[in-house]
Simulated assay, not measured.
Amino acid sequence: MTTYIMLINWTDQGIRDVRSSPKRLDAAKKLLGDMGGSFKQFYLTMGECDMVAIADAPDDAVVARFAMMLGQGGNVRTRTMKAFPELAYREIIASMG
């Protein structure tokens, strides 16, 4: 599994119906689970982003499809970053010679 960090912001539509947000989160968790992935952690945040999720997924295509499907709902916009664990980071740096 690959880890991804998702930066999430509510759209105008999403914040208008913010009380339904926990139900939408549950639906997103199920959707990603059905795609073979999972949420590792989820945070409501203050500052530039409204929420941050750390998720695992089988590959980039799954996460791309997941993010697009979330966007289709019109409640959130996402920015997704692929995350390399410390061991991979060390290996990448060491491979530079």
Rank of each mutant, 00 (worst) to 15 (best):
M1I: 12
M1E: 11
M1L: 15
T3E: 12
Y4Q: 09
L7I: 13
N9M: 07
W10K: 01
T11K: 01
Q13V: 06
Q13N: 08
G14D: 03
G14Q: 04
G14P: 01
R16M: 02
R16H: 01
D17L: 02
D17A: 04
V18H: 00
R19C: 01
S21G: 10
K23E: 09
R24G: 02
D26N: 00
A27E: 14
A28I: 05
K29D: 14
L32H: 09
G33K: 10
M35C: 09
S38V: 14
S38G: 15
S38T: 15
F42Q: 03
L44T: 10
L44M: 15
L44Y: 11
T45R: 03
T45E: 11
M46R: 01
M46C: 03
G47Y: 08
D50E: 06
D50Y: 04
A55I: 15
A55M: 14
D56L: 15
A57Q: 10
A57I: 14
D59G: 06
D60S: 14
D60M: 11
V62G: 08
F66I: 09
A67C: 08
M68T: 13
M68W: 12
M68R: 10
M69V: 15
L70C: 11
G73A: 12
G73M: 14
G74F: 15
N75G: 05
T78Q: 11
R79E: 14
R79D: 09
T80P: 01
T80H: 05
M81H: 05
M81D: 02
K82P: 01
A83I: 13
P85V: 07
P85E: 09
E86L: 13
E86R: 11
L87V: 07
L87P: 01
L87K: 05
A88W: 12
A88G: 09
I92K: 11
I92T: 14
S95M: 10
M96T: 10
G97S: 12
